Amino acid sequence: MKLDAKTLSYLVLPPMMWAGNTVVGRVLVDHVPPVLMNTLRWALVAAILAPWGWRVLRDQAALRQRLPYLALIGALGVGSYNALQYLALQTSSPINVTLIGASMPMWMMLVGALGFGQAFTARQALGALLCMSGVVLVMAQGRWEVLRQVHLVPGDLLMLLASLVWALYSWLLARPPSSMTRGPTWDWAGFLWLQVLFGLLWAVACSGVEASWRAEAVSWPQGPAAWWTTLGGLLFIALGPSIVAYRGWGLGVQAVGPTVAAFFGNLIPVFAALWSWLLLGQTPRWYHPCALLLIATGIAWSSRTTARPSGQA
């Protein structure tokens, strides 16, 4: 399989946006509880997409037929994954979270083999190891002693669960049920809007649980500047990491399959370093281009023999 420029753009944009989400999310989580932040994020997305997405509500018969699938992918991709990631960052370090996230290609291969009958090859396994090596190099900052300081905490288990949730979500996008392939064809805005609506039901319920468990009051920003920063951050994560990234991910998964697409997720720490350089003035180090080379090699190696899946995203 050959990756053309258009497919590469679909697969590179999501990790670029999600890396920005980690930088902005770490700023916002000091003022907004993580599950509530996830709910506010997707509520904004629902409002932005509504003018283009509402037309899918006209076909009530198709909605009823596709209801179980839409409810499932909405709960997984919108309602659960990002909330679990934000929760993980409360007790886990960014190093742990990113290292566990780097195992995504492995979980994609496992879920594909066990749940969807998609065998993986030795070439893909080697590509996954190369990608993980690049991520480990970034997280270790070129020094192995950094990794020796890593300790498992409850947040690590939450990130592991988030990775499994995303793997299942991605395979469901690539292999939709027959109800999604028969009948009316929805455009991307309507399809994503329905995912967001169903995911919001789950996100709002989880926010209620979070509020009942949270002992301290929410520390809302103080002053106009802090409010504008918070609103700007929420708008960014609603547009870039949500609409742009989810659209690109859906097209990329449809083109190359979940397993190959997952390798591109390992570009997140490299893009995070770039975001940190642009926004925080943190200069990239020697290991960043080395890690990028390892990840790019892993992607190229693993994608050479993977067949394109059928399905609608």
Rank of each mutant, 00 (worst) to 15 (best):
Q85K: 01
Q118Y: 08
A113P: 00
A113M: 06
P241E: 03
V135W: 04
R26N: 13
L49F: 07
G250N: 04
G74K: 10
C206I: 11
A61S: 08
G79L: 05
A238S: 15
P15R: 13
W249D: 15
W144G: 05
S9G: 14
P15M: 11
A189K: 13
M1P: 10
Q90N: 13
M180I: 05
F236C: 04
A43G: 08
F191Q: 13
V218H: 12
F264T: 01
L172N: 04
F264K: 01
L84K: 03
A43T: 12
W171D: 03
M132D: 04
R66G: 09
M37C: 01
C206K: 08
W144H: 07
Y81P: 04
A113Q: 05
W275R: 09
Q90I: 10
H151F: 13
Y81W: 13
L84M: 12
Q85S: 15
G208E: 12
P284K: 03
R26A: 11
A217Y: 12
A5H: 05
V138M: 07
V146Y: 01
L294W: 03
A162Y: 02
L49H: 06
P177Y: 07
L76A: 04
Y86S: 08
G208V: 13
G250C: 01
P68Y: 14
I73Y: 00
T121A: 03
A296D: 14
T22L: 08
A162P: 03
P176K: 04
V78L: 02
W54F: 10
A88G: 12
L28M: 09
